[in-house]
Design a protein around this nucleic acid. Structure first.
Lengths: 243, 243, 243, 243
DNA sequence: TATGAATGAGGTTTCATTCAT
DNA sequence: AATGAATGAAACCTCATTCAT
């Protein structure tokens, strides 16, 4: 007696609730709870009851806003990626110098990443737990985010500040470097804070990429404190740490 | 919620079988099957029965060589990391030039990685599914592997071929870059092969690191074909910008 | 991570147990329990736990011999219909007179029916709870059973004992009449026993069907006590009008 | 497992609405929707939401006119049986000849049955899903309906048109024969239409029951076209309709 | 009177693990 | 040492029913 399964776009999520505003609010609530639970114990080890308790709702309510558990994962991963998309553009607002924009973009990226280490790790752990169409949707979102940074890189190249490098590869190198902070937090967190981490890493990576003109601009930016400055003192971890 | 079982080092695995040679053989067999299954479907979605069938043994037999399912995961992850440890030293055998050694080490690393993409992804997905002590054991193993490359880097610095960089950070940058091939295979695999990928990435990363002397050596190595050579004419990839 | 679904004949039932003899034995055990439970409370109101308890096995065991709850229903209904198929032929063994065979077949049929009133009712209640292919399999079985009686009817016609009637319709009339005993047990059971019921009904139905020759034979059979005899003096039922 | 609620006659249904006309209207609306849903998917597989949607009302509204889901089933089954009660008497209006009345009654009965095959099947499937008191109420209704036909039969006997048969048994035989059209629609519907079915069946059944006088009358009726006529042509389904 | 979001008990099913053979 | 049938806890999900609006 199964009811037939309409072929809906794989990214639409079932709900029995009619008020769209309510749906949005509840979904946000559930997504937050899901991110917290999944980050902590992983997707499979988290029960629906866990999420319900975390969100302070009943189990039944969840299934009024979501078709199944996987939907929660999908929503969670989308929200994580949306975080990047949402934070970078505002950070770039009003900034014009291409190199400056690039540095700010990386900084913004690394901050989102640093603020939600668990969520980033979650994305690496559980994206494969989604069925294919949704996995693709997530990947597409990742590429869109990368594109924000890629645009900055291209501007730098066009402005003669960067060598004519492989943009895609370079951007992914930066992204992976940022993610490494989250993925290898057990290694880095005790040694330094995110900003130090990014600062140092960026300097390493930029050295091979900046043109002479780019290097000159960089020094200016460093002087004004908006770009990775040469470490003024105790290299390894001046005493911060967190996580 | 049981934790410590102090008498037994957390990394020892229970068995009811007495012949150590047999234990070793069976465990190897199970580990291979586990890696295959876990890589394909993930740890949680794989059943003991799946592993038993893949290993062509009975379910009961598994529990004679293993205490529980998590042991299989532990064995699998260890084996994956051991792969790196096992492949790099032989590759370095007989090679003396520090820069040459560095390049070969990276190459060896990236090849293990390229040959077992699924296993690398597995490590990222499922390390957190281990209980803490074992997670630490896995991390320790990762650091040991990194140390193989770190030694090469330090030699290059000491030989004046590399600037005086943050070794740890640089090594992790390379490692992450290699892993990215596996983690983002969906993005890179359709565009190029591993060797091209590493070649290009390495060149990007080295430019900021080589001293003048290092750069000279590099050109020599490239000429002799053992190091990332300037692309003579892009293959799949003729249209991309590059360094 | 779903495993692909082979298209097996819709009537094959999944098992994880390898020994076919054991499978058969356990399935029989489960089928009996299922018939009992389903007859008593209906299919939907019966829980798997109910069946497990009735069969004195664990819940898990059931799922080693059966794919899902519907399989239990299918097995139950098949077993019910098989009952008819199994009982009628032996009853006809050695009997040669066409009219005699017809009477014995009906008698056998009505006895199976009378012995498993609940099961017959179950078939009427729950056949629709099966998915289509299986529903068809059950219907096919019903027709096969009817064919046993249809053959007798045809023989009677060929022997000139029955008029040239619509065999199919006549057989179904008899079958429905038998089933009515079960379906309307609340009405008939307090008034008479099955044999009386069939005897009377049969006489009603035969009167319109027997040829003169048939009627003569019938009287002989009645005299020898193998066919519905004229009631010599109603039992429970002395006051009722009768044929 | 709760049972009796003695104060309220088991057939009274709870409502929070005071206007009796409204109650009646709404209940009729709900009953129609319930019959449709239950016939289609069965009682247990139908959700209250299904019924609400079919009736185009809210879920909450249902519970203002009905105590629980079983009430809907009860109302539905009552309505189905009422259908018979409602259709037969008008059909008999003005007809005086006992045999004529009998034939018309059967015809009317079979027509109700033929027009609501699903509903008849529903009654067979789900009557047992009612608690006992209500089941009895339904059975009583069935007997009342039968009584309409029994009266005709008795008149025929008294008029010397029928032999002195067991009225109760004969009526049930006819009723079951009619129901068989619904219950075995999968078998009969492809072969003939209801009227043909009833016509043929009735002739079979009447032959054993009509007295000589009855038979004469019958021929008259057939001649005037109001009774089962001898088939004029192609037996099996001259090409009419089906289910 | 009408609505529909919220609840949570309870059902089906899976699967790690045990243990008799 | 090897097998695989048996177990049952625990997970996901449904849906009758309530109640605030």
């Amino acid at each position: 007696m199964k009811r037939s399964a309409q072929s809906v776009p794989a990214t639409k999520i079932k709900t029995t609730v009619e008020d769209p505003a309510l749906v949005e609010r509840r979904r946000a609530q559930l997504t937050q709870a899901a991110i917290a639970c999944f980050s902590e114990h992983g997707y499979h080890s988290t029960t629906i009851r866990d999420v319900a308790e975390r969100a302070d709702v009943s189990i039944g309510l969840i299934y009024q806003y979501v078709g199944d558990k996987e939907d929660l994962l999908f929503m969670a991963l989308q929200a994580v990626l949306d975080g990047y998309m949402r934070q970078i553009p505002p950070a770039l607002e009003g900034i014009t110098g291409p190199l400056h924009r690039f540095c700010v973009a990386v900084q913004a990226y690394s901050r989102v990443n640093g603020d939600s280490v668990d969520a980033t790790v979650l994305a690496y752990r559980e994206t494969k737990s989604l069925r294919k169409e949704r996995r693709s949707a997530i990947m597409r979102k990742e590429l869109e985010t990368n594109e924000l940074m890629a645009a900055c890189v291209r501007d730098c190249i066009d402005a003669g500040l960067f060598e004519d490098i492989d943009v895609d590869l370079f951007v992914y190198q930066i992204v992976m470097f940022c993610h490494a902070w989250a993925l290898k937090a057990w290694h880095f967190a005790p040694k330094m804070d995110v900003d130090t981490y990014v600062e140092r890493g960026l300097r390493l990576m930029l050295r091979g990429v900046l043109t002479k003109a780019g290097a000159k601009w960089m020094r200016k930016l460093e002087a004004s404190g908006v770009a990775p400055a040469a470490p003024e003192g105790g290299k390894k971890n001046a005493g911060h740490r967190r996580l």
